[in-house]
C-alpha cells in the first residue's frame, strides 16, 4: 500500500509540474526510477524489489542491437569461417573487448 501511495504521489507531482504538457513517457520514467530508488534503498528485501533493480540495470533492446551481428570473439575462428564461406573478414579491434568491458 505504501508503494502505491508513493507511486501516486510521484505521478501527481509530475503531473502538476508538467500540467501544461504531460508526457506519458516521462511520467513512466519517473515512476520507474522512483521504484528503483526505493528498492535499492531497502536492499532489495522482496523478490519484486530484486526484479525491479535487475530489470533496470539490464540493457533495453535498443541498447543491444549490435548483438544482432553474428560476431565471433576469435580472429582465428574468423579466418577459418572466411576461407570456408568465401566471405571477407571484418575485424572490430579495440583496446578492451568490444563485446565485453571496454
Amino acid at each position: 500500500m505504501r508503494r502505491m501511495i508513493a507511486f501516486a504521489a510521484v505521478l501527481a507531482a509530475a503531473a502538476f509540474a508538467n500540467s501544461q504538457t504531460i508526457d506519458p513517457d516521462k511520467l513512466k520514467q519517473i515512476a520507474e526510477e522512483s521504484s528503483v530508488i526505493a528498492a535499492f534503498e531497502q536492499n532489495m528485501q522482496t523478490d519484486e524489489q530484486f526484479q525491479t533493480v535487475m530489470r533496470f540495470i539490464l540493457p533495453e533492446a535498443g541498447e543491444t542491437k549490435w548483438r544482432k551481428i553474428p560476431w565471433t570473439p576469435d580472429i582465428w575462428e574468423g579466418r577459418i569461417r572466411s576461407a570456408q564461406q568465401e566471405k571477407p573478414m571484418f575485424i572490430w579491434a579495440m583496446n578492451g573487448d568490444p563485446l565485453g568491458c571496454v
Binding site: 535498443g62 542491437k65 549490435w66 544482432k68 551481428i69 553474428p70 560476431w71 565471433t72 570473439p73 576469435d74 580472429i75 575462428e77 574468423g78 569461417r81 572466411s82 564461406q85 566471405k87 571477407p88 573478414m89 571484418f90 575485424i91 572490430w92 579491434a93 579495440m94 583496446n95 578492451g96 573487448d97 568490444p98 563485446l99 565485453g100
Partner: peptide, 24 residues
C-alpha cells in the same frame, strides 16, 4: 553497430570478428 544498414551488410556479406587488440 546499431545501424540497420551496418548490421545487414556485416551479417550477410562479411565474417564479423570482435577483438581485444591490447593482447593480440
Amino acid at each position: 553497430f546499431s545501424d540497420d544498414r551496418v548490421i545487414k551488410i556485416l551479417t550477410e556479406q562479411f565474417i564479423p570478428v570482435a577483438d581485444n587488440c591490447t593482447f593480440t
